[in-house]
């Protein structure tokens, strides 16, 4: 009882949080390395061999910086905003399974912190709370750049949540469940949703760029127009909080794409190879991380290749292109599901 309900989830939570923090700090490092590669520079190379300890140096630098709060700022909300951003970014991961259920010391252990009935909806619900972090930070700073960034971002996130939701509906038609483990097992073999419903995959991918505020949709923090957008008035660890949350959100978006469209932890036809159960499970977990890594690379690659959209273009794309496309995908998924049954 005590082990099942408290100890095992706690261990899982600890592992997930440590993994997330490490991946987040190293995705910042890779962002800098890949941008350097894209722009024909060298990138960070001073701290450790090839600069691999750079993330720790960055964190210490931010920790020792002075925390400046503007005089006109609304102090409680100004402090709450980055906490909220981090809360949303780290709790979302609880429902995403990183591998098949494995047997450890005679106990079947699910490789997600919890496997709840409406898991996908839970992720959407928590990410929709992420808007508050940005609007509160924008409003409480008492600066017009921050406010503009906050307002832009809430409009952007609400608009793209619609096409995101409709794309997910297409996946749910095939899985006939909202439970993450069911969604993954419905994509056995090459029946990945990215293959079955490519339009939905593209709309979800684009919407997740908009939801994570990454280029080409990073209008909430567009430097040339808004200085830094919603986090203009933040410094020290509070700024780092937003920074961490952005990268954590990127990882969650990648994990969601892998779970919904790229078959989760599954490797097609691995069962036919006749491997031992332990080896098969570890290969599948490795496959999950490889898929996430590839998507993270894609996120970074796009950032350094495509210029930022104008605000009206962003809204036009969201409402006049993405929304109809995701509806079309829903119809396509329904027809396909009818034919296949």
């Amino acid at each position: 009882m005590l082990i099942d309900f408290i100890l095992i989830p706690l261990v899982k939570i600890l592992i997930i949080v440590v993994l997330m923090l490490l991946t987040v700090s190293y995705s910042v490092y890779f962002e800098r390395k890949i941008s350097a590669w894209a722009q024909n520079r060298i990138g960070p190379n001073r701290v450790g061999p090839a600069g691999i300890f750079q993330p720790f140096a960055d964190v210490f630098k931010l920790l020792f910086k002075e925390d400046i709060v503007p005089k006109v700022a609304n102090k409680p909300l100004h402090t709450l905003a980055p906490i909220l951003a981090l809360f949303v970014a780290f709790t979302t991961y609880a429902v995403i399974p990183i591998g098949p259920p494995v047997e450890i010391f005679g106990k079947m252990i699910n490789l997600a912190v919890v496997d709840v009935n409406s898991g996908v909806l839970l992720v959407l619900a928590l990410t929709s709370l992420g808007v508050y972090a940005i609007t509160f930070s924008g409003w409480s700073s008492g600066s017009k750049y921050s406010l503009l960034g906050g307002v832009r971002s809430s409009a952007q996130m609400i608009s793209y949540e619609i096409s995101m939701g409709f794309s997910v509906a297409g996946v749910l038609i095939f899985a006939e469940s909202l439970r993450p483990s069911d969604i993954i097992s419905s994509q056995s073999g090459w029946m990945w949703n990215a293959v079955l419903q490519p339009i939905g995959f593209l709309t979800f991918l684009t919407a997740s760029f908009a939801e994570t505020n990454r280029l080409p949709f990073d209008l909430p923090e567009a430097e040339p127009e808004l200085v830094g957008g919603y986090h203009t008035e933040y410094s020290s660890m509070k700024f780092a909080g937003f920074f961490l949350a952005e990268y954590a959100n990127m990882i969650i978006a990648s994990a969601m794409i892998v779970m919904l469209y790229l078959g989760g932890w599954q490797v097609p036809y691995i069962e036919t190879l006749g491997l031992s159960a332990g080896l098969q499970a570890s290969l599948q977990i490795a496959a999950f991380f490889v898929k996430i890594g590839a998507l993270l690379f894609f996120f970074i690659w796009v950032r350094w290749s495509i210029p930022r959209f104008r605000y009206d273009q962003l809204m036009d794309l969201g409402w006049k292109v993405m929304f109809p496309l995701s509806l079309l995908n829903l119809v396509w998924a329904a027809i396909l599901a009818m034919i296949m049954n």
């Binding site: 409406s118 909806l121 839970l122 959407l124 619900a125 928590l126 929709s128 709370l129 808007v131």
Partner: peptide, 9 residues
């Protein structure tokens, strides 16, 4: 979950 999505979100 729907409560959070619709009202809070």
């Amino acid at each position: 979950v729907v409560q959070v999505i619709v009202y809070a979100g």
